[in-house]
Design a protein around this nucleic acid. Structure first.
Length: 372
RNA sequence: GUGGGUAUAGUCAAGUGGUUAAGACACAGGGUUGUGGCUCCUGCAUGCGUGGGUUCGAGUCCCAUUACCCACC
């Protein structure tokens, strides 16, 4: 028995959308779900209690960052990541695979692993699948991710093929290295770029390893949205129905709807938290750049339809003032709102699937939200 | 009143007779998708207190004038 298991509750009649539940040692996760990102053992600008209050049942944290600082041994000493950061719900840790991609010229990939330089102090490090799992075992997150290579876009078919096959070999090593199977579950990651046959190949190879969950990686790396949707269409079909499906790094409202429609259960993204710190809000009427001069004397709430703490208590004019003044509270209030917006939206999506009106809900959402 | 100094964008300012007047902040707009991000990109002075003059050419030199600052009476 895996530490993390998936329960399929209901399938949408018209689309591939589905309503499910993931059981973890730190509580159940109703799916489809959006996971806020807390890279350095903190969802930036938020207290854990707030993240809980707005309804998040799982957050994502990062192996690469915690390994570099404060160090996974220190987190282990602290009693694990949950205790260290005072978060008693589920945690998923990314493997550091994405940093292999985003660190760009600071790294070198080989069969054994990845040599890279710390973005903090420039020191040299070497990550292998075994190392990534060792770190994630020390952190104690409920879901740990395989160490993969997130290939760039665009990329030659030949490169993608060799990369995906290496990612598969790395996955086998991850599975072998993973010891805490009673408390932590390892998810595999599909690669294959924008090539259908390679996606199929990748899926066949990783599904065979019978892991408790599967992620689709290598998307949202700069390709046009319609390309991503097209790839997503067939990717989901290659994954087993009785396991959660996780689309990595996707989090704009439209992408969430499109992902759910194609059968995705889990999403994570820095978008809501990052843009919040840069003065951008997601609202039911579309994106609102709170720094725009038009809100200088706008004393109405950010989103009249929102019942989050920020919208219940503060005006656009005040939020603009906070942002222009570089006040810490600006990041706090906008992050709170954006996370609430997405978590709440996912709740409505789940409800709509239960009531067989997902397509209708999507349509009405798009009508109001407009351009993304 | 006398002597000296300073006036360049909303602010602080570079500029030593030669293309198109640095830069910073502010302001305005845009970006951000498994976080190297309180960040990045773009725009923003046909003009140098005002009026004359010298010169092929003046923010730069000369004269006058106004405002402000400092010292002395």
């Amino acid at each position: 028995m895996h530490a993390v298991t998936y329960e399929l509750i209901k399938k949408d009649e018209k689309t591939k959308a589905r309503r499910g539940r993931i059981h973890t040692p730190h509580g159940d996760i109703e799916t489809p779900v959006f996971m806020p990102v807390g890279t350095a053992a903190t969802v930036k600008a938020m207290r854990p209690e707030e993240v809980k209050e707005l309804g998040a049942s799982i957050i994502l944290s990062n192996t690469y960052h915690l390994y570099l600082r404060p160090g996974h041994e220190l987190v282990r000493e602290a009693g694990g990541l949950h205790k260290f950061m005072n978060w008693d719900r589920a945690i998923l840790t990314d493997s550091g695979g994405f940093q292999v991609f985003s660190l760009g010229d600071l790294r070198k990939i080989s069969e054994e692993g990845v040599a890279f330089r710390s973005h903090i102090d420039g020191s040299k490090h070497f990550f292998t699948p075994e190392k990534s799992i060792e770190v994630q075992n020390a952190l104690g997150s409920d879901i740990i991710m395989a160490f993969d290579e997130c290939a760039p876009y665009p990329a030659e078919r030949d490169y993608i093929k060799r990369s995906l096959e290496r990612t598969t070999r790395w996955l086998a090593r991850c599975k072998e290295a993973h010891k805490n199977t009673e408390t932590q579950s390892l998810f595999g990651i599909m690669q294959g770029g924008m090539y259908q046959d390679l996606r199929h190949q990748s899926a066949m190879e990783i599904v065979e390893m019978d892991l408790p969950g599967y992620a689709i990686g290598g998307l949202s790396v700069g390709e046009p949205k319609d390309v991503m949707y097209e790839v997503l269409d067939y990717c989901v079909d290659y994954l087993p129905e009785n396991k959660p499906r996780y689309l990595m790094g996707v989090g704009s409202p439209d992408c969430l709807f499109e992902g759910v429609e194609r059968g995705i259960d889990m999403f994570d993204c820095v978008l809501p938290t990052r843009i919040a710190r840069n003065g951008m809000a997601m609202t039911s009427g579309g994106r609102v750049s709170i720094k725009n001069a038009q809100y200088e004397r706008d004393f109405s709430p950010l989103d009249a339809e929102c019942d989050c703490y920020t919208c219940k208590n503060y005006s656009r004019a005040y939020l603009r003032h906070l942002f222009k003044s570089n006040e810490i509270l600006s990041s706090m209030l906008l992050t709170n709102h954006n996370l609430h917006f997405l978590v709440n939206m996912m709740g409505k999506i789940r409800e709509s699937i239960e009531e067989d009106r997902f397509s209708e809900y999507k349509k009405s959402f798009y009508a109001k939200y407009g351009r993304f």
